[in-house]
Design a protein around this nucleic acid. Structure first.
Lengths: 340, 340
DNA sequence: TTGTAGGCGTTATCAC
DNA sequence: GTGATAACGCCTACAA
């Protein structure tokens, strides 16, 4: 344990030149002679010099850290988004700092109010909030923010999947399979992506002149358990649904588990469609029809966008919408009724 | 966009006191009068003062950042470990910086050789390496390191699950169900946890006087696809296995997918046991017997341990082994043969 | 092309 | 109890 820290001073001393020259050589600025630069780089390698990020950050006003704020990482979608973010961040020499809100608005607000420009060059966020004061506060501080997945109506850059069209197609597909009483089990009302998927569902029904039945639309949490509960409640209606479009795969799977318990043949007698394309869709029986989201690309693009905002101060906000794709599997096809 | 940064100087000026007093008051040191402290705290809140971490880190030589280095986050185990780490880190006001190695030793080495004490107070790592030079290098720099899950024989603190006993129990369970030709599909040989699970498997066989057949032990990657491939290869043996103990649930599931294609009745005719207790175990048909790992606790405990090492310079290394638990489900029980 | 000096925001070491 | 002042390591005018 030596804790010896090599600084540019050490290099300067050994080479009998000034620290500013060393600093310039290391940063590859134009105004330093090739020989000096070479000497400095050699010596730096020899001494195993590593820059001190605190010092650099302090003098330059930046840190090369970007923050990611999101509800969870224990699911396919978010962990894949992060992987996409990480790829870009790593390429451009940025570190990512992870903050988990646990889907708590209070927690999210608390985390953000403690963030400073001194600790973070920018933020990527999938917000769970319905009130945006804390986000405004951060933006006002001058910290670049890019939203992904769960956004809002603030003027900021966003990267999302095409929730509306995905939901429209999913619902239209169920209709095309002859399902007439399609329920929608979804999340809290105040989420933007939830609203978009709901609208896709509603417009698909309208478009096919199927009457909308409010009692078939259930707002609840996003978890598998919530999906199971929602289905249970729906099946207690006098006029039961014959299909479900779920806001995500988790809830769809919760519903499937419940349907199996009720001995209802998924596919043949009851259509189920999810959203995300979690790998589990192909493993569960019957396999689950869903709308795929390009989670990795969303992370990648969001990070690229954030880096642009960090580099250029007043870059106008942009909104990127990535198309989804309906992936038809057994859970929504009537002819494969005797699988399960 | 104001980018106005409030510093202790601003507070000092407004209150007509010195910066050192402000600094003391904010840090709650004993030698400052209650009134002054009160005034400072009030003013800090009024001006929305936030400390500059770069400056603090520079003068104190620490950052309140800890690094997590692991292969992936897109699976249940690792994402849950991180969630555990995050909980503790957040409580103690530490940020976590995420590095993904993609299971590449080269990448891991590259990442670590760029880490410095100036950027990180400590490191939590699940290593994919077989050569530990880069890890030694970091430890020699004086950066505290705690290993979790994938460890090695270095003298450092470790937090792992009880791989040996979990594997022993899993194998013994298959034997108790009457399976006699139990294969083991696992990962690369040079991983410690892989070795431990292999040893548990081998000793369980020995203990029940079942001859060990080397051709039933397959080293390959950790993915679901590898599991499917392994099974395919095993079934081409003249003396086929009648059960599999997989090093993790992913591989077990890959094997199950393949068994289904071959129309082999899992449970009744072929036993399968995994390791991890990924939630998918209860969703797949038939449900998968497995050894549960306390992923969240491993993260929690590893982080707590790291913080202790950060606080106390020469704390002796400790090794924490968390017990697993065999969770018996359909895939290993002969009597439920006609599920699937 | 190189060197000098001041500053980034905070903490620590002295005096007072 | 409080206030100067010098670090911490690096960057960046400005001067040479």
């Amino acid at each position: 344990m030596l804790r010896q820290t090599i600084t540019i001073k050490d290099i300067a001393r050994e080479l009998n030149i000034s620290v500013s020259t060393v600093s310039r050589a290391l940063r590859d600025t134009f105004d330093v002679s090739p020989e000096t630069k070479h000497l400095v780089l050699e010596k730096a390698k020899e001494l195993k010099y590593k820059p001190n990020f605190n010092a650099r950050g302090l003098s330059q006003g930046r840190t090369n850290n970007i923050g990611i704020i999101l509800p969870f990482i224990t699911n396919y979608y978010f962990s894949t988004v992060i992987t996409g973010i990480q790829k870009i961040a790593y390429e451009f020499n940025y570190n990512i700092i992870l903050y988990l809100t646990n889907d708590s608005e209070e927690r999210e607000s608390l985390i953000m109010s403690n963030l400073t420009l001194s600790g973070l060059d920018g933020i990527l966020i999938s917000t769970c909030a319905s009130n945006y004061d804390h986000i405004h506060e951060v933006i006002d501080k001058g910290i670049p923010v890019v939203f992904f997945d769960r956004t809002n109506n603030l003027d900021a850059s966003k990267v999302v999947q095409d929730d509306y069209n995905g939901a429209f197609e999913a619902t239209a597909h169920l209709i095309s399979q002859g399902f007439m009483n399609i329920a929608h089990i979804t999340g809290p009302k105040d989420q933007m992506f939830t609203q978009n998927r709901l609208n896709g569902y509603l417009n698909a029904l309208e478009h096919h002149r199927i009457p909308i039945r409010k009692e078939l639309i259930i707002h609840n949490g996003f978890s598998q358990e919530c999906g199971a509960d929602d289905l249970k409640n729906l099946m207690e209606e006098t006029n039961k649904p014959d299909a479900i479009f779920a806001v995500n795969d988790r809830k769809a799977i919760g519903a499937m588990v419940q349907l199996k318990k009720l001995n209802i043949q998924i596919g043949r007698d009851f259509g189920v469609v999810g959203f995300t394309n979690d790998p589990i869709c192909t493993l569960i029986t019957p396999t689950l029809t869903t709308v795929s989201e390009s989670a990795f690309d969303i992370g990648r693009i969001a990070c690229e966008l954030l880096l642009k905002h960090i580099q250029k101060d007043n870059l106008p906000s942009t909104e990127e919408i990535l198309p989804g794709e309906l992936i038809i599997r057994e859970s929504s096809i009537r002819s494969t009724g005797d699988l399960q």
